[in-house]
Nucleic acid binder design. Structure first.
Lengths: 201, 201
DNA sequence: TGTACAATCCCCTATTTATGGGATTTTAAT
DNA sequence: ATTAAAATCCCATAAATAGGGGATTGTACA
């Protein structure tokens, strides 16, 4: 049962956006991110995703209390961490659930995030895109590079069944290509990237 | 024939170190990095590697002209880019070959790096499993879930060429399945798993 | 100047995927 | 007892991939 989380990062600098998400991903490969440059981008999105944590550079509020208040009331259900990259915005970080500082070590960043994450366990019955046990078997073997025929032999079922499972997986995930299925499997820890590398390369 | 380069990054913030190297890696998967927190770490190393570029936050010199001079004369053969993360150090970036600013777009960062890189072209040094530029293009698009036909359209080449590139990739990597190619691309930072998720799911 | 290789294009065939239909049986929950 | 979902199996067709040939052009290097 994996911990998964969906994190919103709002930060003007692409270096910082990528750095932060890379550091978090290295520890939690199943976490997904939405990265934005400004607050406006967040509101104009019809993205109804529910975030488990928001990390935002206070500077994106442009010293506008109004914008900040709107943001905080819009996301009042979610913990919001400030990402403090310089000294001037020290005075801006009231209201945040907590703060990350640009010069923090990766350990303390991860601890702070862990602390404020509204944890979601993956044994969820979210609508109907939950894969069944057998579908997970098929997806795992598929993502490990097996053909449908090989999967059938491995699971002692006919290739028709494998095809059917795969069709259902594709429908549930809304995905058509093998590549996307592999990406999904990697992102959701259904396969381990290092193990797979060993066997397939 | 891939461009390869060995880059030294000296920057106190792990977020910025990881972000910068991630952004560069996404474009140039063959680049390697040595990441340091302070200048002292650089001198005390037994690392005799020759760098093709150094990216350093001027703040690591601690306002010490002496340390900065020592550093610059030690690496006088190498281009040194300043990594400017705040306003105070504007006055410190004389002497640098060029500058990156924390809020630069990834495009301008990559252009600036490209410009100052002492380019090293190496054919086949890693046995013969080095992918060519074009092969990397194909692999990236493939791992992002595009069909061979779509890749052909995207790259303005015929599908035959894509098939040929793919055949060569498979031979070089000793891999047959799409899944294994995706795994390889993920493990080697050729694609970013979060970006890919967004587009394919 | 000859060799090597990257990049492009083409043909061929066998196999595999993708996707649309169906169907039955078992298990679990209401 | 009815319903729902999981798991299994089958048919059929269009599209894509895997892998085998082969070829040309241009660039870089020795």
């Amino acid at each position: 049962m994996n911990k998964i989380a969906h994190i919103l990062i709002i930060e003007p600098s692409c270096i910082i956006r990528e750095g932060l998400s890379t550091i978090i991903s290295q520890k939690n490969p199943a976490f997904t991110f939405v990265k934005k440059t400004s607050v406006k981008d967040v509101f104009k999105k019809e993205d109804t995703a529910v975030f488990n944590l928001i990390i935002v550079n206070p500077l994106v509020f442009n010293c506008s209390k109004k914008m900040k208040n709107r943001f905080f009331s819009y996301f009042k259900e979610v913990n919001i961490l400030g990402l403090i990259s310089s000294l001037y915005d020290r005075n801006f970080h009231n209201g945040f659930t907590g703060c990350l500082f640009l010069n923090d070590s990766s350990t303390s960043i991860l601890i702070e995030i862990e602390k404020h994450l509204t944890i979601k366990l993956e044994k969820n019955r979210v609508s109907d895109n939950t894969l069944s046990d057998r579908e997970l078997d098929v997806l795992r073997l598929l993502a490990q590079g097996n053909s449908q025929k090989e999967i059938a032999e491995e699971l002692f079922i006919s290739i028709h069944t494998v095809v059917t499972h795969r069709k259902n997986i594709s429908h549930k995930l809304g995905v058509k290509s093998t590549a996307a299925l592999v990406i999904y499997a990697v992102a959701n820890n259904i396969i381990d990237i290092n193990d797979s590398l060993k066997s397939s390369l």
